[in-house]
Design a protein around this nucleic acid. Structure first.
Length: 401
DNA sequence: AAGACGGGGTA
DNA sequence: TACCCAGTCTT
């Protein structure tokens, strides 16, 4: 008797699988889900599903493991319990609370989407298409929020679901390529549960996260008997690993300007690495280039900051997804009075809470050690051994105008 | 289709 | 070390 619109996503593709087989899969997966799943905090239905909390979790969990995202989620809902509260927050506060979690465009899109949703819909919209139109809502997040928070019968295909379905139905080929993606999307669409779409989608993800992992534990799998890859003895080799481009080395010189116990921080430019975050004034050091000169030029051109670069206080290396990042801290003195705007002066012992990206927070730890300041309570411990302290640089800084 | 975008868990 | 993670956006 219910009138249903065809889901807008994915495009209708005929599923060559018997409805009976799909129904059996749904039944087993839901039973497995009901029999017990991880009690993650955003799954606690305090007073029914809270779309805002579901959404916040989905965004934080993009390319991020549960154990990493959880403490951030708890802090966010404590500080900004509702969509309205988040929309009213200051950008820099939210970005600072996100610092360390990575992929900072997620945070900027989160804020933009919160404000746009409130303005255009009075809250989070419930339909896939309306969600998909908001910043940061790709196919996965729109499907996850629509199905989990609003019970919309749409699929939600993430890395876990791709792996699970690739194995269950023996999908061959690079999962990033169009053919395999369309195949997985069609399977996920065919498998959607009309009664409990959110639970079925979560069951697939939970299975991928806890059982059908890259190295599968088929003995614990509720649908192992129906798994085509398992039958072929190929569960562990599907889907094929994604090939990644080589990492490019990036050296960033970071200015440590200290004035009366406070350190100069700027805001990173809108696009690119660490976009929008608080950061040390920094400059890329090309191959064969001189770090101090590059830093003096960049600080002057971008921030109006006239610096004289001095000795190196320490360095830190980080492996990012696609680059090898090396941060070199250079002590700098002010050659001219600094501009009033665009520079924040942070007490050295408060750098840890200033909203720096994780790599720069680690660098701050090294620098504080070298300068004999109170080190931040966390971060950088691993790098302290690499700090290249100079015997004559241990005295408190005396860099004044 | 390919690259940019962080940081950390895991084997 | 290599791969992966409840992906999205831009060339």
């Amino acid at each position: 008797m219910t009138v249903r619109r065809a889901p807008a996503y994915p495009p209708p593709v005929p599923a060559p699988h018997a409805p009976a087989r799909l129904a059996a899969l749904r039944r087993r997966l839901l039973a497995w889900w009901d029999a017990g799943h991880r009690p993650l905090p955003w799954r606690q239905p305090q007073r029914g599903a809270d779309p805002y909390r579901v959404w916040l979790a989905e965004v934080m969990l993009q390319q991020t493991q549960v154990v990493t995202a959880t403490p951030y989620w708890l802090r966010f809902v404590e500080r900004w319990p509702t969509l309205e509260a988040l929309a009213a927050a200051r950008d820099e506060d939210v970005l600072a609370a996100w610092s360390g979690l990575g992929y900072y465009a997620r945070c900027r899109n989160l804020l933009a989407a919160a404000r746009e949703a409130l303005r255009r819909h009075g809250g989070l919209p419930s339909g896939y298409d309306a969600l998909r139109a908001l910043p940061g809502f790709g196919p996965y997040t729109a499907g996850a929020v629509a199905s989990i928070a609003f019970a919309a019968p749409v699929p939600a295909v993430d890395g876990n679901v791709t792996r699970v379905l690739s194995r269950l139905f023996l999908v061959e080929g690079d999962p990033a390529a169009r053919a395999a993606r369309a195949r997985v999307a069609a399977l996920a669409a065919a498998l959607v549960d009309r009664e409990r779409p959110g639970d079925l989608n979560q069951a697939l993800m939970e299975l991928g996260a806890t059982v059908c992992r890259p190295s599968p534990d088929c003995a614990r799998c509720p649908v192992a008997a129906r798994c085509a890859a398992r039958a072929a003895g190929r569960a562990a080799e599907l889907p094929p690993p994604r090939r990644r481009p080589d990492k490019v080395r990036l050296v960033l010189a970071c200015a440590v300007v200290v004035r009366e116990g406070r350190v100069a921080l700027v805001r990173r430019p809108a696009g690119g690495l660490f976009a929008g975050l608080a950061a040390f004034p920094a400059a890329e050091v090309g191959p064969g280039a001189e770090a101090g000169a590059a830093l003096e030029r960049e600080a002057r051109e971008r921030h109006g900051l006239r610096l004289r670069a001095g000795e190196e206080l320490g360095r830190v290396e980080r492996v990012l997804t696609h680059r090898l990042l090396e941060l070199r801290a250079l002590r700098c003195s002010l050659a001219r009075p600094p501009p009033e705007e665009g520079i924040r002066w942070i007490p050295a012992d408060e750098l840890d809470g200033a909203g720096l990206p994780a790599a720069m927070r680690a660098l701050a730890g090294v620098v504080c050690d070298v300068l004999g300041q109170a080190p931040p309570p966390s971060g950088g411990a691993r790098d302290r051994g690499r700090a290249r302290a100079r015997a004559n640089s241990l005295a408190p800084p005396r860099d004044f105008v």
